[in-house]
Amino acid sequence: MAAVLQLKEIYKTFHKGTVNEKRALNGVSLDVEKGDFITIIGSNGAGKSTLFNAICGSFPIDQGKIILDGRDITRLSDYKRAYDIGRLFQDPMKGTAPHMTIEENMALAYCRKTSSTFFAVNKKDSAYFRELLAQLDLGLEDRMKTKIGLLSGGQRQAVSLLMSTISDPKLLLLDEHTAALDPATAKKVLAITVDIVEKTQTATMMITHDIRAALELGNRTIMMDEGKIILDIKGEERANMTVENLLALYSKESKKQLANDRILFSTQK
């Protein structure tokens, strides 16, 4: 099958040549296949978010190649890449414009793919937005003229999720997008995520610190450490993997004190 995303030997060092020099990506290579739903785990500072930033073009990488759907996007500016990449952050405030209405926010996200109309908010698109919002089951379809800043974090994140998938991206990147929400809301947003990904079959990469969820969701799991991918499992190997084994593997491969780690902490919930 054709790879949606190909990463070839990606290197990125921050503050090169200073005392703060930090090698954040240390030769990352990865093929994301069509329909892949990859969960990504790794300790704090492993380089997970940096990997997403590199894919999205937040900064130029030092070395390597990024190929999206057969097209080399290594030197493309961030907003041009965004045409085919949907992205969600941990902070629910990042994905939406607070002083604009739900409808206007969605219209903006939908701009790149919809037929061009004079007014951003129009009847045809609004009907579609309404339909999408109704699927969230949060009652937002009746509040389309509400400013997004008035919604709760969970509601904002749910709308952001719709916005980042509304124009059929080839790749969806989720960076701990439920970590800032209360447990009940997080569960709901995660359920919506799985639902959307299954429905649209968008290739998805999801960073999470919940190891259990990482093994349960999706079809493939990657572990990162010190800017490298140290584990990449799928199929039977993944099906047979337990949380305990993964943790053991993790400690063996990275030789780190597990007790200090957030991963262990989050599995004790």
Binding site: D78, A82, G95, A97, P98, L108, A109, C111, R112, M163
Partner: peptide, 11 residues
């Protein structure tokens, strides 16, 4: 309002 969001909407 949110420049980051504008960029991620490919604008």
């Amino acid at each position: 309002d949110n420049e980051e969001m504008v960029r991620s909407s490919s604008i």
